[in-house]
Nucleic acid binder design. Sequence first.
DNA 1: CGTCCACAGGAATGACGGGCGG
DNA 2: CCGCCCGTCATTCCTGTGGACG
Length: 398
Amino acid sequence: MKDSLDELFEKIMKARIFVNRDILRPDYIPDDLPHRENQILRLAETLVPVLKKSRPSNVFIYGMTGTGKTAVTKYVLNRINNEGRKKGIPLSIAYINCRHDDTNYRVLANLCETINIKVPFTGLSVSELFRRFVKALDASDKIMFVVLDEVDALVKKSGDRVLYDLTRINNQLNNAKVAIIGITNDLNFTEYLDPRVRSSLGEEELVFPPYNAVELEDILKQRAEKAFVEGAISPEVIKLCAAIAAKEHGDARRALDLLRVAGEIAEREGADKVVEEHVRKAQKEIEKDRVVEVIRSMPFHSKILVLSIYLLEKEKGKGHTTGEIYDVYSRLVKNFGLEPLTQRRISDLINELDMLGIVNTKIVSRGRYGRSKVASLTVPYTHLKEGLKEDPRMSHIL
DNA sequence: CGTCCACAGGAATGACGGGCGG
DNA sequence: CCGCCCGTCATTCCTGTGGACG
């Protein structure tokens, strides 16, 4: 008696594409990071004074997404931490992703958590939080690394107050010490900073250039060796993934995703090796999943906004001003029995859609006929509809 | 060459729910 | 329980502006 699940299980077991697919995930940190030897060494050099119990310089790390900033940082800190443990030097490492924790409060709350003082989600004043953090940290006599990943997101959203406080924190500490490692993919980021913060945070700077196709290929090769069953992957497929990712700012994360998803597709199809076609399919699938997920998690008004742009484009082609879009949106919202948001707010929401890569916007001046922002959808309509359809309030329209 | 359109986008403010410490 | 502070979402009011029209 065999049902469809049995067949599925069998197929998965038989297909044997992967040995360990987690090796291809972006948060996996391999034992060595090809083509980053330089950065590893430089970072280690600046941080190593910690092993003699003195405070290392603050470091600022620049580089586009997927250039290995996070991996290198974690790798070096791991090594230093191990070494510190051997030597009996008490270290503490806080890793904060500022895209996730993008308010002053959440950053501090996170810091408090890593030194094991419990704090509420919200409720305390920022200065109170800071006071507690300083007190608890100083009592512990540790040297603490604070890694602020994607720190530009924090500063753009909430200002550089916490950054300023953190750079000056060592003045308030008698026993403990703090070193900050700021990571950003915005190369002009320091312009947003108070000059005092800039100089103290940028004591040491490190740049991560994008990988080129050859380097990406090495990275993929190294990971694929451990991740795939022997013979399941060919050099040509790896080359293709590397080439595709190299076109998009040399993003290693993208390259790894591509390889992993291609493998998953091959496995699903019951193939015993990954071929070019799987990579092509993976490319489409990744983009589609991204779009559907983004739209699914949007608040209702944004969904209606997307729908408005879609309807406009279907009727009149691409490229519509905020005013046009707002009119359609207003009518649509009223059909749902809701009050429309103001145009000001919609303007912000359109900017958000731009950031999310759902629409493209550019400012167009029509002289006497005003100055406006023109938006067009950048994603396939089918993806978009699929995302919208998941909302029960929306499904009857599509 | 000034005007003036159709907005962009900054600043201030408020409503709201969550969560503190006392 | 109260008074306070938080972040988030939204509104209101506002000043700024590129360039075709006259």
